[in-house]
Each structure stands twice: as C-alpha cells, then as structure tokens.
Design a binder for these strands. Structure first.
Lengths: 339, 339
DNA sequence: GTGAAAGCGCTAACAT
DNA sequence: ATGTTAGCGCTTTCAC
C-alpha cells in the first residue's frame, strides 16, 4: 500500500501539500498530485487519520436482534441515510443482553465517532454517559429514562396500539388478550399502555390472565398464545405487540387449529414479510421501517457534522415520532356470537 | 480517555510493562498495573494499535442485500462465529452493484484484517486480488471464476435444485416453469443447471418461454410469474430459485387468483420466514443459514490466526458445501388432469 | 501556497 | 523482567 510519502515523492511536493490537496484545499500542483494519487492507487490509511484527528468516519450501530427482519429493514434504512463516501457502519447485535451491549459499546469506543443505539432497556445508563461525554448518539425506536438530552426516533407506539384497540372494539370484541413486550422497553411499555387505555375508556376490563408480557421473541408469542387458548374462557381477539410475537401467535393458533378470524381475531404491531399473503392476511399496525432507519442516520450525520465544527455545538436534542397506520386485512372480524 | 502513559505513571512502571501485561505476558508488577487499568478505566486505542501493528481486529462483511431475511440470518450466524471479545464486524450491503461493491471494498481496506464476501458476480476480480495480496477472504454462498485459491462456503445448489425437480417429476409434472437467478452468480447458475439437468435426464423439455432468468429480487419473481401465467399453455408447476423471487411468485399467483397447488404447484429454493404458515404451506429446499454464516466466520477466524503467525501460512483453501433438504409441505401436488 | 517537523498512542526491538 | 526509544501514516501548526 502506497503512503502519502510515496505520493509526495512522485508528485515532487511535500506530504503537507498532498494532505492539503486531499482535504480539498487549493494547491498549485493539483494536477501532479492527482496524477500521483491515481497512478499509485493511493488510499489514505484510516487508522493513521483516526489517530491524528480522533475521527474515524464510522458509526457504531447496536440493535437488539439482527436476525429480526424488522431490524434488517431498519439497517437498510440506516445504510440509505449514509451520505456518499467514507462513512461506515459497524454493526453489532446485543441479543437483548445488557451485558453484551456494554461490552460492545466498550469495544466500539475507539473505532467510531457516534452511535445508533436501540438500548436493551429504559434503565440503560450507557447511552446517556456517551452523550455527557459529548459523543453523538441517536436512539433507535427505544428511549431511556432521563434521555431528554438525546436524539431519538420513535414511532407513535401508543397511538398505533390505540388504533388497534379501537378497531377491535368497533368490531364488537370485549374479551381481548394482550401480549405485550418487556415493560422496561419503550415499545413494550407504550404499546401496552396505549392499547389498554383505550379499552379502559370504553369500560372493557382486561383481567390479569388476558394481560400477558412477553419478550418480543417468537417463542414467547407462541407460549403466551397457548396460555390464552388454555383459559376456561378464551378471548375473542388477541393483540401482539411486535412482529416476532405475532409469528409465534400464528404458529400457536395454527397448531391448535383455531380458525382466524372466525374464532379468534388477531392484530399485530408491525407487519410481517408475508403478512399480506397469509390466509387470512394479517391485520396490523404498520410503519415505514426503512424511513425510520434513514431518519436516524440523517440525525446522526447532522450531529457528527456539528461535533466536528465546535466543542459544544449545543444542537438541541430532537425527538422524532413517526406515524403508524392501521392496515385492516383479514385476520380481524366481528366476534362469533356465543350462545 | 486515559492513555497507556497514564496507566504506566499510576502503576509506577514503564509503558512497555503495561503493554506486556495487556498482551498477557507475565509481569512482576501485575497487580499494580491491573489496579491502574481498572481505576483509570483504561481501554487501548484501537486506531493506535492498528497503526502500529497493522491489525485492526475487525472483519469486513459485504452482502448483496442486507434487507433480505436470508442474509439477515447469515449475519446472525456470522456474529455467532466470532470468538469472545475484540473482533468486530463491519457490515455493508452492495445492493447487487459491482460498482458499489468496489467502493465499499476500497473504503474498508484500511479498517479490517479480512473479509466475508458474497461477490456480486462470478467475474468479480476483487476477491482474488485480495487473496493475492495475502488478505484473508472467505466467500459466502457465491464463488468467483478461478477462485480455487479462496475459502468458500456454499450449499449444494445443484443437488438441492435437483431434488426439487425430482419431486415435481415424481408428482407427474411435465410442463414446468423455472425462474432462476442471474447466470453469472453461483446460486443462479448452479440451481438452474441442477434443476434442468434432472428434467433433461427424464426427457422433459423446458421450452424457452418456461426457462426464465430473474435477478433474485421479489419484483422479478412477480413479473416472471405473470409472464408464465400469460402463456397460451401455462405450466403446471413453477420452481423459484430464491426466497425473494418465491415471494414475488406468491404475490403474482394470488393476484391472478391461481389456486396453489390445484392449478399450479410452487416449489422454492430457501424457506420463507412464514413459509410453513402460508396457505398452503410452502414446499421448498431448505438449509441452515445460521450454520452457514457461522461456518464462514469460523474459517475466516482460523485464517486470521494463521495470517498473524506467518507471512506465508499456506493454509490450503477450503471449500465447504453444506447440504440441503427437501421440505415437502403443501404447495406442490399432482398436476390437475387436463382434458 | 508551501515545506519541515512535531506528535497522536501504541508495540517491538534493543539494551540492560 | 524491565525501561528506552523509534516509528507506524497522517494532519497541522509554524515559519517562510
């Protein structure tokens, strides 16, 4: 690999001139330098640049589960949000483990200029520590306690869940099972609250056996749905708070040969890859995941730019809440009339 | 951020001793150094290490489409294959563009010690250039021409496609549509050839209008299926060569209200997230994606280890071919008897 | 506009 | 076993 020395030698100038040329400054011998760069196939050594400047032209991304198609779509959006050239993404998956998350964050520390984080839980102190140190951070889909100082891109969890609840109420459901996510995550908490508050407004009681909390993974959706099906009096509808748990619910319903929506209606938060091709097609609350990812990266890039210009840029933290849409397909219907 | 100097000062030793301690060598003042490291929260600066040693403790991963759940599963496997601590993954998506791939590779050059690559096409020269330079590379799911010198982890594309073909023949199909991937990719080429060769052995002719080539994306699966449905005489079965095109085919069949498998049987290469929950559940050739990813990373890690020990390690290139399984579910059946 | 030179944090001789 | 020191490739003063 040629170094900047080689380029300078070939162009007959000093390394300083080459460096200036590369950083866009006007240089008398621009042509000669350009020629040398091209001829030698010179690429600056990022490690050396990083050491000298403290900047890495890379961002760290930690998602809870990269195998989840939802986060795959988010990552696609993140990639779209990266401006052309030179900014890279270090991706890691915390597997919903706070411990692993802490290790990853520590490892990334001297490799990146900023972070996209979907913290494992809202009590997570790490993101705020970074912010206090002046490190650009944008939270993805999840907030942390006291995180007002931190950019965040959410969806309207409560509103989306509320629209799902209203839809079920409109259809006539009164006995509804809720499978929500961990109460210490933003989507887990807000979706449950948004859903239940609408039911409460309409004096619909959700007894403890119908109000279940999962972990956002497929297996818990399956298990909790089985639990609902085992009740003496089954619900007539089920709300699942994320895509993976919806998949689990579908498997359980299918395994138990429960006809959807004839016996039980199902409504999920977030669509599935094939949600529209299922029989019946899935009714769900949808959002634009790719756009959400893109927005996150745009905020981060902007903040990185400011961080470069001044020590204390004082860009006020931004909180973006993207809308959700209720997509009514075939998995919800009027409850069957019981005797 | 404290430096190794700070640690040395606090422990009352030289930086060399701290460095030795950190690299695992036995040191007299181990306790004092450990105390200083902990108290200061010292973390070595990776950029400085990289500059000094030339190693980055990171690997670059370039997949063609990170939004594809198949590659998301692969990436999950890759993450599993990373030994505890300190090795990182820089992930990028080439979006099936050779140009973007080249740029990504150039950008990653001074950030990583090795690569996992799913090259955009088999004529791609870049992976071999890296290998010639002594850079550890493992090819993922796709080979390149003349790439005998390069580790690669494939699946038995031809065998899997052949099993699909035999399954359709056994059911009695004789007029079969084939939607394959780009002929200049390994899975595109091998799956088509494996499929067609079995048909040829049984003297089943696939006329040009039934032998279509897509681009592995959902939209091409949809369009080419529409094309098959528009034929004067429709096929009684369709084989789609990857997951995304299978989704497209399903959409087209549904849009045209073609009953599966009653009028047309469908068999795909690779399962879908909800393949088993579709109505009918999808018959397909399956493999263990996570295992494939894990295997790739294990090979790469091994090669990185060798690369560290000697200049010319001469580890012979390995070629791992993982098996596939025919998963017969409900989307294939005996062809309807025509008049 | 340009060049000489310092130095970012670390590791690996080399000398002890 | 330990300390001293050169230098990885680059950017950025500083003096011209």
């Amino acid at each position: 690999m040629p170094t900047i020395q080689d380029v300078a030698a070939r162009a007959g100038v000093s390394v300083a001139t080459v460096s200036r040329f590369l950083s866009g400054q006007t240089v008398r011998s621009a042509d000669a330098v350009r020629e040398a760069v091209d001829a030698l196939g010179y690429r600056p050594d990022v490690a050396a640049q990083a050491m000298r400047t403290g900047r890495h032209s890379a961002v760290g991304v930690i998602v809870p589960d990269i195998g989840n198609p939802f986060f795959a779509a988010i990552v696609k959006g993140l990639a779209q949000g990266i401006p052309d050239g030179g900014l890279h993404m270090l991706l890691a998956s915390s597997e919903e483990s706070a411990q692993l998350e802490a290790r990853l964050l520590a490892d990334l520390d001297s490799r990146v200029d900023g972070y996209v984080l979907a913290p494992v839980n809202e009590q997570d102190r790490l993101p705020l520590e970074l912010v206090r140190r002046g490190v650009p951070v944008v939270l993805l889909d999840r907030e942390v306690d006291g995180g007002e100082d931190c950019d965040v891109v959410l969806v309207d969890n409560a509103g989306g869940a509320a629209s799902a609840a209203r839809h079920l109420l409109d259809l006539g459901h009164r006995r509804i099972g809720v499978i929500s996510g961990p109460a210490n995550t933003t989507p887990g908490r807000e979706r449950r609250e948004g859903f239940l508050s609408v039911l409460a407004e309409h004096d619909v009681v959700v007894e403890p056996g119908l109000d279940l909390v999962g972990d956002f993974l497929e297996e818990s959706g399956r298990r909790l749905t089985e639990q609902l099906l085992a009740l003496p009096e089954r619900p007539t509808a089920i709300f699942t708070a994320n895509n993976q748990m919806t998949v689990g619910a579908l498997r359980a319903l299918q395994a138990a040969s429960v006809p959807v929506p004839d016996e039980i209606s199902l409504i999920g938060f977030d669509d599935l890859t094939l949600g529209g091709l299922l029989q019946p097609p899935l009714t769900c609350v949808v959002r634009d995941e790719v756009r959400q990812g893109r927005t996150v990266m745009e905020l981060l890039v902007e903040r990185l730019g400011h961080a470069r210009l001044a020590e204390t840029p004082q860009v006020p933290p931004r909180r973006v809440v993207l809308e959700t849409t209720l997509l009514v397909r075939g998995s919800t219907a009027t409850p069957r009339q019981e005797a």
